[in-house]
Amino acid sequence: MTAAGVDVVARGASVRGPRGPVFEGVDLDVPAGGLLAAHGPAGSGRTSLLLALAGRMRLSGGAIRVGGHVLPAHGRRVRRLVAVARAAPAVDLEERLRVREVMTERCLTSPGVTQRAIREAFDALGLAPHGEDLVEDLGPADKLLLATALALAEQPGALVIDDVDDGLPPDAHAPVWAALDRVREHGPTLLAGCLRPPPPTPGLHTLLLPRRSRDRLPAGTATAREDSDT
């Protein structure tokens, strides 16, 4: 289940919405296998930034390079490299489904993903969900790790997971971040969004995003844009 991580670089990356900048002038350098924690309050553009890094939101300005592929020209290649585990409301698990159903769905929709690969990802994250459990009945930590495991099973070069600390009780923060840090042992670079930065760990890169806009990301904003690769 090990994949090669990719580096992620941004220079002056910006996205504007109808009411002004969602985020602007972002510079970052995350080496292959590193951990980015983009943190800030609601309205700071965390989700939009993560989707832009994943090739699923078009920039208004600046540039992003993922594993040597520059956006937007190489959008398809970047989308193949980067798996999005959660970036609500655009990307999230269907809460009305059972765990076994979301596993089956992932095997059908993501080439190369198997039930075995998903269960190996569960083991890597210390997760042991029951197949008949409804996603909506899972606790916030298990729901987060389930989404992460499904994405990890795709063997991506980088993995996006937003709202890491959303709804987590205080005593769950450290175990969840420790579990996510183990994702990097399997290769992928981890691009995370959170309200507050995680505990210090080797390879951690933090980015504070100030609140800039009241724009909210509408459902369906993250799309697999058909950018031309050259």
Rank of each mutant, 00 (worst) to 15 (best):
M1H: 12
M1T: 12
M1S: 14
A4F: 11
G5R: 11
G5C: 09
V6R: 10
V15C: 11
V15F: 10
V15L: 14
R16Y: 12
P21D: 07
P21G: 01
V22G: 00
V26M: 05
L28P: 07
D29R: 11
V30R: 06
A32I: 10
G33Y: 03
A38R: 03
H39M: 00
G40Y: 00
G40D: 02
P41G: 04
A42H: 10
A42K: 05
G43T: 08
G45K: 09
G45Y: 09
G45R: 08
S48C: 14
S60C: 00
A63D: 01
R65H: 01
V66Q: 01
H69P: 00
L71C: 01
L71V: 01
A73P: 00
G75W: 06
R77F: 00
R77A: 14
R77C: 04
V78C: 03
V78L: 03
V78E: 03
R80T: 04
L81G: 02
A83R: 10
A83V: 07
V84K: 13
R86T: 13
P89N: 10
V91K: 11
V91M: 11
D92W: 08
E94K: 03
E94I: 11
E95V: 15
E95S: 14
R96N: 10
R96Y: 12
R96M: 09
L97S: 13
L97Q: 13
R98I: 02
V99E: 05
R100N: 04
E101W: 02
E105S: 05
E105F: 12
R106V: 07
L108I: 00
A117K: 13
A117T: 06
R119P: 01
R119L: 13
R119A: 14
E120C: 09
G126T: 08
G126A: 08
L127H: 05
A128V: 12
E132M: 02
E132F: 06
D133V: 04
L134G: 02
V135W: 03
E136N: 02
G139D: 13
A141N: 01
D142F: 01
K143T: 11
T148P: 00
T148R: 04
L150W: 12
L150D: 12
L152R: 07
L152F: 09
A153L: 11
A153W: 12
A153I: 11
P156C: 08
I161C: 15
I161A: 15
D162F: 01
D162N: 06
D163F: 05
P169D: 10
P169W: 08
P170T: 08
D171E: 15
W177T: 05
A178D: 13
H186L: 15
P188A: 08
P188F: 10
P188D: 06
A192T: 13
C194Y: 04
C194V: 14
L195F: 11
L195T: 14
R196Y: 12
R196A: 15
R196K: 12
P197K: 13
P199V: 10
P202L: 13
L204S: 04
H205S: 11
H205C: 08
T206Y: 10
T206L: 09
L208H: 15
R212I: 08
R212Q: 09
S213I: 12
R214C: 02
R216A: 15
R216Y: 01
A219L: 09
G220T: 07
T221D: 03
T221M: 13
A222H: 04
T223H: 09
A224N: 11
D229C: 08
T230M: 05
